[in-house]
């Protein structure tokens, strides 16, 4: 089914899209049908610049386990990084 489960957050950084590097101002996280991944539902992350054409999107479709592992790994890596470097 289409779950419509989606959250959008502001984000700051850069991402490399099919058209080159872009400045990022938004990330959308959803759990819904993928376009390409071969599982019925995936954790989807879209990193975009809301002022740019939608085709500059950087997209991920991960199965639930992979998404959890990624999220935990991101948090673990941030834990290792000195706080002074995270300003």
């Amino acid at each position: 089914m289409c779950t419509y489960i989606v959250e959008t957050i502001p984000a700051k950084g850069s991402a490399k899209s099919t058209k080159g590097w872009i400045d990022v101002d938004r990330a959308t996280v959803s759990f819904d049908h993928p376009v390409h991944a071969m599982t019925p539902h995936t954790l989807n992350i879209d990193v975009t610049n809301s002022k740019m054409d939608a085709s500059y999107r950087v997209a991920l479709e991960l199965d639930a386990n992979s998404a959890r592992n990624l999220a935990n790994t991101i948090l673990a890596v941030l834990e290792e990084a000195p706080l002074a470097l995270q300003q």
Binding site: V6, T28, D53, S55, R57
Partner: peptide, 19 residues
């Protein structure tokens, strides 16, 4: 949501806009 984008990018834009 995304007049000139490919269908998957437009779907993502629609999703971000609440469907």
């Amino acid at each position: 949501d995304a007049p000139k984008a490919q269908s998957d990018d437009a779907a993502a834009a629609s999703r971000a806009n609440g469907g």
